[in-house]
């Protein structure tokens, strides 16, 4: 089943099948990412620039700022949810660490369990 994924309204949110699913202004925990020097970067997502799906995971490119140290940078392929039986299941922004071990580290992606 084809999934329509896009960012809209200046990157304010991610649309999945014409439904607003993931918005900006949440704080995402990025446990293993080299986003900044913080042990666990807590990054306020300010805008999404792109979104794609890989192995059922919905991955977003975004711009954000660590609310602890103030580092602002772009983020590639942040997992924001997954597709299960054709439906989008969002990840909890604060729960990325427990939801997805090794978060967005490229080498870890292939170890994710199938979701369907």
């Amino acid at each position: 089943m084809a999934i329509a994924l896009r960012t809209l309204d200046d990157g304010a949110w991610i649309s999945v099948n014409d439904s607003r699913e993931v918005g900006v202004s949440d704080i995402w925990a990025l446990p293993t990412r080299e986003f900044c020097s913080c042990e666990t970067p807590h990054v306020l997502l300010e805008a999404y620039s792109a979104v794609h799906v890989s192995d059922h995971r919905v991955l977003a490119d975004a711009v954000g700022m660590c609310i602890e140290c103030g580092t602002r940078d772009s983020i590639d392929s942040l997992p924001v949810g997954r597709i299960v039986d054709g439906e989008f299941k969002p990840y909890e922004p604060a729960g990325v660490q427990s939801t997805i071990p090794d978060a967005v580290d490229g080498a870890a992606r292939s170890s994710f369990e199938p979701v369907e």
């Binding site: 309204d9 200046d10 990157g11 304010a12 949110w13 900006v24 202004s25």
Partner: peptide
């Protein structure tokens, strides 16, 4: 602001 706007943070 967040009263109505998708992009606003506060």
């Amino acid at each position: 602001g967040t009263e109505f706007c998708s992009l606003s943070i506060v």
